[in-house]
């Protein structure tokens, strides 16, 4: 069991999902409420990682971080920070889509009621919209965490395979299989499987309560 790779992986997933929340909350708000006619183009851009092969995304990020590019002077290629940048791009739709869907499902009347009580758009965002979107925000956070845990192609392209820096569990498994080290690969695979399952179970378990409230509220409103 490669503990170093496990720590790198968890660290990458944690840093990535936290940064993603900072980006995804305002971006999702904009997606949910903007009436800009060309909004769909940006939606398509954000959703690209869902369909692009990770190697394609990884390739572009690598080029963007390379010495020829303006970003090159930050020296991000084959570093942990470069990996974080790539992971943020790669998992962006997994954060944005559930959050934007939850924001969009907040009934307009609650937002307007807040305005009519003299409360600003920003304050309405965190006092009305976010509290009523907990399940979506939670889902977005966890999906981006879990998705980052399992990424392979982007990590390989952008991070390389530097032990303790950019070697994540998925890369480690690949290495072990290449070296015919099946027992070790099996242990690491099982570890990744269990971690992913436990995280998702905790989140869906917590989320069930949120869903329960949501369904209950809908039920009461329907009555």
């Amino acid at each position: 069991m490669n503990w170093e790779a496990l720590i790198t992986t968890l660290e990458l997933a944690a840093v990535t999902s936290v940064i993603l929340m900072v980006i995804a909350l305002p971006l999702s708000y904009w997606f949910a409420f903007s009436e800009w006619r060309w909004k769909f183009l940006l939606e398509a851009v954000v959703a690209l990682p869902l369909v692009l092969p990770p190697t394609v995304l990884g390739f572009y990020v690598l080029i963007a971080l390379g010495p020829q590019s303006p970003l090159g002077r930050f020296g991000l290629a084959f570093t942990f920070n470069g990996l974080v940048l790539a992971s943020v791009l790669y998992s962006l739709p997994f954060a944005v889509q559930p959050i934007a869907a939850a924001f969009g499902a907040v009934e307009r009347k609650y937002i307007e009621a807040s305005w009519m009580l003299g409360v600003s758009n920003f304050e309405t965002f965190y006092r009305v919209i976010v509290p009523q979107s907990w399940s979506g925000v939670l889902t977005g956070f966890v999906l981006s965490f879990a998705h980052t845990l399992g990424e392979f192609g982007v990590v390989l392209m952008v991070g390389g395979n530097i032990p303790g820096v950019t070697r994540t569990l998925s890369i480690d498994i690949y290495d072990q299989v290449q070296g015919l080290n099946y027992t070790s690969a099996a242990v690491t695979s099982a570890t990744l499987l269990i971690i992913s399952f436990v995280i998702l179970s905790i989140v869906y378990g917590l989320n069930r309560k949120v869903w329960f409230f949501a369904a209950d509220r809908r039920h009461r409103e329907a009555v």
């Binding site: 009934e107 009347k109 609650y110 307007e112 009621a113 807040s114 009519m116 009523q132 509220r217």
Partner: peptide, 20 residues
């Protein structure tokens, strides 16, 4: 003038009490 700045009390049809 933005809605927030108008000294109006608006009662919505189904009251729109914040459920949370």
């Amino acid at each position: 003038v933005r809605p927030q700045k108008r000294p109006i009390g608006f009662l919505f049809q189904d009251y729109a009490l914040f459920p949370h």
